[in-house]
């Protein structure tokens, strides 16, 4: 049997209601995440990138259009998705292994300890299993957060600016690690970021969103860079031109003149 397509968004629209009025966050947005791909989503701030992830995760219901997660409606496909946030959000009172097992515990999955220990071992954190988060560096903590996301074995990873809270140097290394881990574990991922070079170095395809209400403005296929690691991509001759193209597609408006 062929694998179901991880994520299909068709003509999706979403309207927020607050006491100040209603906001159209997303309108006529169509997007497909192919199996095994990391699909980057870049867009101006406040363009509904996070909203999009919440829709796929089944946390928010779209007001229009169709969403399919592994061929299921998002409410049923919830366990197919693993969410990774900007900050690691490790609980300081739990050891690393207990933090990693939190996701399984919440979802009521038993017997994940061996798998979790295996992941920690594989990604160089075995020695820290019984330590507390405060004893780890920012990059290590983010790796722990990724492993916590992987423990319930999701098909799809939803990464919401997962490197935003790291300093630049750590970030470059962690991007490398995370891409390696995602590819290794055979996952598909939606990767939201506002950092263009991070998006180009990490992803297999790139969707540029418009300002609110968000739709896909331009789509970039980066599969020809697939054989390069994020670090190598930064040195690739096509990197600069690609960066300019994405930058132009984003079309940042100057908010105030200096």
């Amino acid at each position: 049997m062929e694998r179901p397509i991880p994520v299909v968004l068709k003509d999706v629209g979403l309207t927020y209601h607050t006491s100040d009025g209603e906001t159209k966050a997303v309108e006529h947005l169509s997007l497909t995440l192919k199996y095994g791909d990391i699909l980057g989503i870049v867009g101006p701030s406040g363009s509904g990138k996070t909203t999009l992830l919440s829709v796929v995760a089944g946390i928010l219901a779209p007001t229009e259009g169709k969403v399919e997660v592994c061929g299921l409606p998002p409410s049923e496909g919830k366990d197919k998705c693993g969410y990774m946030l900007q900050r690691d959000e490790l609980f300081p009172w739990l050891t690393i292994i207990d933090n990693v097992l939190l996701s399984a515990k919440v979802k009521g999955l038993k017997d994940r300890r061996a798998y979790a220990e295996n992941l920690l071992d594989k990604y160089g954190l075995k020695a820290y299993a019984d330590r507390y988060p405060r004893e780890l560096s920012g990059g290590m903590r983010q790796r722990v957060a990724l492993i916590r996301t992987l423990v319930p074995s999701p098909e799809i990873l939803l990464l919401d600016e997962p490197f935003g809270a790291l300093d630049f140097q750590t970030r470059v290394y962690v991007v490398d690690d995370v891409r390696k881990i995602i590819k290794n574990e055979g996952k598909s991922a939606l990767f939201v970021t506002h950092d263009i070079s991070e998006a180009i170095s990490m992803c297999d395809a790139l969707a540029v969103l418009s300002a609110r209400p968000a739709h896909v403005k331009k789509f970039f296929d980066l599969s020809r860079l697939a054989h390069l690691s994020p670090m190598q991509r930064r040195d690739d001759p096509s990197f600069g031109a690609l960066y300019d193209e994405v930058w132009k597609a984003l079309e940042f408006k100057k908010e105030n003149e200096i």
Partner: peptide, 14 residues
């Protein structure tokens, strides 16, 4: 209680 940690619990479907 830390909003980010509550969001994490939301994303896990707690």
């Amino acid at each position: 209680t830390d909003k980010g940690k509550l969001t994490l619990m939301d994303t896990l479907g707690a």
